[in-house]
Simulated scan of single mutants.
Amino acid sequence: MPIGSSVDLTNAPEALVRARQRAALMPDLLVEARRVVATVIAGWHGRRRRGVGENFWQFRPFVDGEQVSRIDWRRSARDDHVYLRDREWEAAQTVWLWADPSPSMRYQSKDAPVSKESRALVIVLALAEILARSGERIGYPGVIDPISARNAAERIAAALLNSRPDDPFPPDDRLKRFTELVIVSDLLDPVDDIIARIDRLGRHGVKGHVIMVADPAEEVFPYAGRTEFRDPETGMKLTAGRAETLREDYTTLYKARREHIAEHCRRLGWSFIAHRTDRLASEALVAVHGRLSGAPQVMGPRSKEPAA
């Protein structure tokens, strides 16, 4: 096709239209992901985990049943406690990344700078950029097998141009025990379906990190007066004569639903992060990188007011 020519997509299948829109958007998302990384990368190092290696990680108290040969007697002599000397795990780990491709992810209200889909892809690509610098193996289920390469983010972006599964959750046939999975989704599917998919992945021994991304309008319900709501998944419509009368019930149900999913993740040992698209992408990136690095999770999802 000649450069500068245009194509009438009026009668094209929706999947084709969406694929071409994504192809046009992906380079910008990759640039934005690298910009986000540049704002937070200073002073960061690879994920530090206890394991077999040569580099010192931390001292910790000795407990019965552990190897006496690992006691650091010099450190223990400083007080009345016995300490072990932990070393840092040095082997590359496999981290799978996933951005929900559901139609609901394309929503963007007037108060949001980007759609949920764009924010999810930026977070995924930025995380790929950071993990690649740490030597991790990174993959995207059903799109690209795990790779360990400095240009992993670029390769994932290129692969997503040509192939992107439609399922809101990743295919689990490649997700093996001890691997980690980062899912960025609005989690608007039926709650029972979400819990079942999380449980299935958990039974496979996968350690998950869920980022629930929301448009500010979905959380605060700013609508008033006669308003028509349309389900982007099914096309079903609901017309409310006075939408403001629904606000209290809606926000109560929305927060309870989110907390139910978050609590289920915690019971499985998964992390859960709530993120709004009117916040900085770097906030979600820092939070999920912390979870991958083993930082403790603050109990309960919290939403912040838009940054000034």
Rank of each mutant, 00 (worst) to 15 (best):
residue 132 A to I: 03
residue 300 G to H: 07
residue 33 A to F: 01
residue 284 A to R: 01
residue 235 G to F: 12
residue 135 G to D: 10
residue 147 I to V: 15
residue 117 E to G: 10
residue 41 I to L: 11
residue 49 R to K: 10
residue 218 E to L: 09
residue 256 A to M: 03
residue 22 R to W: 08
residue 252 T to R: 00
residue 113 P to E: 00
residue 66 E to Q: 14
residue 17 V to R: 15
residue 4 G to R: 11
residue 281 A to V: 15
residue 1 M to K: 11
residue 236 M to I: 13
residue 89 W to V: 02
residue 182 V to S: 05
residue 258 R to I: 00
residue 86 D to W: 06
residue 7 V to K: 14
residue 213 V to G: 00
residue 246 L to D: 03
residue 231 D to F: 14
residue 97 L to Q: 05
residue 219 E to N: 11
residue 45 H to R: 00
residue 109 S to Q: 11
residue 43 G to I: 13
residue 242 R to M: 02
residue 24 A to H: 15
residue 235 G to E: 14
residue 112 A to D: 02
residue 83 Y to K: 02
residue 164 R to C: 01
residue 72 D to S: 07
residue 54 E to R: 14
residue 29 L to K: 14
residue 203 R to P: 02
residue 188 L to E: 09
residue 7 V to N: 12
residue 162 N to I: 02
residue 64 D to M: 09
residue 234 T to L: 12
residue 191 V to R: 00
residue 201 L to Y: 06
residue 159 A to S: 11
residue 284 A to D: 06
residue 285 L to V: 09
residue 134 S to V: 08
residue 284 A to L: 03
residue 229 F to T: 06
residue 232 P to K: 10
residue 16 L to V: 04
residue 49 R to N: 13
residue 113 P to M: 05
residue 59 F to T: 12
residue 91 A to Y: 15
residue 106 R to A: 12
residue 214 A to R: 05
residue 241 G to L: 11
residue 276 R to Y: 04
residue 227 T to Q: 06
residue 133 R to V: 05
residue 166 D to N: 07
residue 57 W to M: 12
residue 165 P to Y: 09
residue 154 E to R: 15
residue 203 R to G: 03
residue 248 E to Q: 06
residue 88 E to K: 08
